[in-house]
């Protein structure tokens, strides 16, 4: 497919040390209304896949290990 990539700084970052997605946790992925998070099958950790963040924070608030940090997207800062 011939889409050009658009660079972007992801507002959602996940601390791989704290993330327990590899233990079966899917909390952040489940609670994201925009469905922008995924679990990387190679690392077993969550990451931001789509740059469509509403900075609404359930991912950070509900994460049992507080591994998720959300920044206000640059365009709004």
């Amino acid at each position: 497919m011939s889409f050009a990539e658009n660079p972007s700084e992801f507002p959602v970052t996940i601390d791989a040390e704290k993330c327990i997605a590899d233990k079966g946790c899917t909390v952040c992925v489940d609670v994201c209304p925009l469905d922008v998070l995924r679990i990387n099958p190679e690392t077993g950790k969550a990451h931001m896949r789509y740059d469509e963040c509403w900075y609404c924070l359930p991912c950070a608030l509900d994460c049992p290990t507080k591994a998720v940090t959300v920044a206000i997207p640059y365009l709004l800062r």
Binding site: V31, P33, P58
Partner: peptide, 12 residues
């Protein structure tokens, strides 16, 4: 469309 746990206008 999302997940009932956190969806819609009152997600948070």
């Amino acid at each position: 469309k999302a997940n009932v746990k956190r969806s819609g206008a009152i997600a948070v």
